[in-house]
Simulated scan of single mutants.
Amino acid sequence: MSKPGLNTLKPGANYFAKELDSFVSSTDVVLLSTNDSQIFSDPERQYKVIHEFDGFFEHSSDDGEKYFREKKAYVVEKV
């Protein structure tokens, strides 16, 4: 399993919610979960990384334009 201080997640690997919590707190990433807002409610629940993206498009409410953000994004699902 992974160690504290993760700097990346691997697609196909499982992680405890507490590991994902630490990862998100220390890394500039986006984490999308199929478990809605309950991802951190049980620190021992495991999640599998389904997809990894190098970036995403984001709509700016300031100017109405869409911009590509080069920022890691991961999709995880409850195991």
Rank of each mutant, 00 (worst) to 15 (best):
I50N: 12
Y74F: 13
K48I: 07
P43T: 00
L20P: 13
D21V: 04
K72E: 05
Y15H: 13
S26V: 03
G12I: 11
F68K: 06
E52H: 02
G55P: 01
F23V: 08
L31I: 04
G5M: 05
E52S: 13
F16A: 14
E19Q: 15
G5N: 12
N14M: 14
K18N: 14
G12M: 12
A17T: 01
D36Y: 06
S33K: 00
E44M: 10
S2Y: 05
S61A: 03
N7D: 15
E58Q: 12
A13E: 15
F23I: 09
G12K: 12
H59T: 04
L20R: 09
Q38H: 06
H59D: 00
E19Y: 06
L20Q: 13
E70L: 07
T34F: 00
V76F: 04
L20W: 08
E58A: 09
S41Y: 03
S2G: 11
A73H: 06
D36I: 00
V76K: 01
N7W: 12
T34R: 01
Y67C: 10
L6Q: 08
P43A: 02
D54N: 07
Y47E: 05
K78M: 01
L6N: 07
D21W: 11
I50M: 14
G12H: 11
P43S: 09
A17L: 14
P4D: 09
L32I: 12
Y15W: 04
F53S: 15
G5C: 04
S60C: 08
F16H: 11
S33Q: 02
P11H: 07
S22I: 11
S60V: 05
M1N: 11
D36H: 06
G55M: 03
G12S: 15
V49T: 05
A13I: 06
T8S: 15
R45T: 13
G64M: 07
K66V: 10
T34V: 00
L32Q: 12
D42A: 04
D36W: 03
H59S: 01
D36T: 00
S41F: 02
S33W: 03
V24T: 15
M1K: 09
H51Y: 13
I50V: 15
F40R: 13
S37Q: 10
L31R: 03
N14A: 12
F68G: 05
F56M: 01
G64C: 08
F56P: 00
Q38D: 11
G55D: 04
A17E: 08
Q46H: 14
R69K: 13
K72S: 10
F68T: 01
T8P: 02
G64E: 10
V49N: 02
S25Y: 11
K78E: 09
H51A: 09
F16Q: 12
K48L: 05
N14E: 13
S25M: 10
G64R: 13
D42L: 02
L6Y: 05
D42Q: 01
F56V: 00
P43D: 02
K48W: 03
V75A: 03
F53P: 04
D42W: 00
S37L: 07
H59P: 00
E58K: 12
E77M: 09
E44C: 02
D36G: 09
